[in-house]
């Protein structure tokens, strides 16, 4: 049976992981390669690296980091942040990333999704969607969740799939950093409407939240950062907890 995936997310700046609350107030949570190695060993099903470095120098550091990670872990990993062209993707895949994730650049230029899917195959193209509930409407945001767009989240998710994305990474800005649980209703609405897997992100604070997102939220994978980085929830404990509650989990 296909299992639900537990995915730690590592926000990267200059080769180190950082994570804040609601995407501001960054804190240093450690060496990225070392964290990746620990997570893979502890049973993480996949890793996501989101690069928040904007400088050219920082991008070079990222490629070096990706290559080190590829030589260290034996599970799939996705790299996102600042990707806006076929050349960017090609460089990351060559460095050893298994998948890439795009966000703002897909909103700016939806054709990019189709181009990347055509060039590299849908299986390695993840589209990240940051969403916030504004004036009675789930609204897609870009630039780390700071800039609202005109896009309604559920219809954007459908367009992204139609254009060839292989997976959706849905982050609710309303729940992100709150530790009050994932945005279950929205995740369920998108996941039951989607033919491709949905990774839910934002709001995980305890183990029950993962149970909820896999059942009520109908998510295929659950992603979190700080609760893993600061060892609030050890991955082996989380996976055992879910397995005992009849969630299909790889132990």
């Amino acid at each position: 049976m296909l299992t639900k995936r537990i995915i730690p997310c590592l926000d990267i700046k200059n080769g180190r992981t950082v994570k804040g609350t609601n995407f501001v107030n960054l804190r240093d949570a450690g060496d990225a390669v070392e964290l990746a190695r620990i997570y893979a060993k502890e049973g993480a099903d996949e890793l996501v690296f989101l690069d928040i470095t904007a400088t050219v120098e920082g991008r070079k550091t990222l490629l070096e980091l990706v290559n080190k990670v590829a030589h260290t872990i034996n599970i799939p990993f996705t790299v996102g942040g600042g990707i806006s062209s076929v050349a960017d993707v090609s460089a990351l895949l060559n460095a050893g990333a298994d998948k890439i994730s795009i966000n703002s650049s897909a909103v700016r230029n939806p054709e990019l999704i189709s181009e990347l899917a055509q060039e590299f195959g849908s299986q390695c193209i993840v589209v990240a969607i940051d969403t916030r509930y504004v004036d009675g409407k789930h609204t897609v945001h870009t630039h780390g969740g700071r800039k609202p767009t005109d896009l309604e989240t559920i219809s954007w998710a459908k367009e992204v799939e139609d254009r060839g994305a292989g997976e959706l990474l849905l982050t609710s800005m309303d729940t992100d950093g709150t530790k009050d649980g994932f945005a279950l209703e929205l995740t369920a609405a998108i996941s039951s409407n989607a033919g491709i897997p949905v990774i839910a992100s934002g709001g995980a604070g305890n183990m029950e939240h993962f149970y909820d997102v896999f059942t009520t939220g109908k998510a295929d994978a659950g992603l979190a950062a700080s609760i893993f980085h600061f060892k609030e929830i050890p991955i082996p404990d989380l996976k055992l907890y879910l397995k005992e509650r009849d969630i299909s989990i790889r132990l």
Partner: peptide, 10 residues
């Protein structure tokens, strides 16, 4: 069941 199958299976 979603297609493609994406993830860990036994």
């Amino acid at each position: 069941f979603k297609i493609p199958q994406t993830g860990w299976n036994s």
